[in-house]
Amino acid sequence: MRRPSAATVLVVLVLGGVLAAPSLLPPGAAAMDPARALLPPSAGAPFGTDVLGRDYLARVLAAGRPGLLIAAGTTLLAALVGIPLGVLAGAAGGRTDLVVMRVLEVGFAVPPLVLAIAVLGVTGPSAAALVLALAASYAPLLARVARAATLARMGELYVLAARAAGERPWRIVALHVLPNTAGTLVTQTALVFSYALLAEASLSFLGLGTQPANPSWGRLLTEAIPLTTVAPWLGIFPGAALVLVVVAVNLRADAWGDALDPRLARGGRP
């Protein structure tokens, strides 16, 4: 793997900054001051103030962490469950593959938001339930990608040659299949992270995710809607923050995967 590029470093810094923000903010940042409610952006308050007079910049910065944590948890869980399943299905083939694929199809048939709303509708707003519900929807996606990538490698002649040399199946997977699929998997996992960010934001917007006490960016928008005509900045800034993070991850996802791919293998002489 080569050294990370400047863009990647930037993205990591931004994400880290957002995660750390709530702990870094000065204590007075969240102070309420009803006299200064709903002020438009100015030098003193770059993002303006909200309905309770709080500095909105501080509020938006603090709202990044809940969403990022939930998305990270979802992605991790989805990858830990989905990728091994997909690799297993692709490498084992036959009946195992068939069974796994059928199960995954059921997972695919229910759109992620639908499943999440249904689950949260039964359990009530709960971060754990949210993570589980979303992970249940994204794990099949990662499994499918992992399976396809594994199948592609298993069909290569160097795998056949390794079998002919007497190599054990699990070692073939570990030594030949996984290193060559790592790039695709990294890209897809990064994309799942961006999907999870958006899903969490939508669910919070609908009132089922984070609650007013510890809002994520999506939740901030719920509160901004009734005040659209009066204070549009309440909606513009948190949304923009979310879009920026998601765009950053999307733009780098391909590059991160490419960094792991056998670059030298592409474009070789025939």
């Binding site: 290569e156 056949l160 040659a161 060559n180 070789g268 025939p270």
Partner: peptide
């Protein structure tokens, strides 16, 4: 196929 009979990595 010499291309695919060796692991590119």
């Amino acid at each position: 196929d010499p291309l695919s009979s060796l692991d590119p990595r």
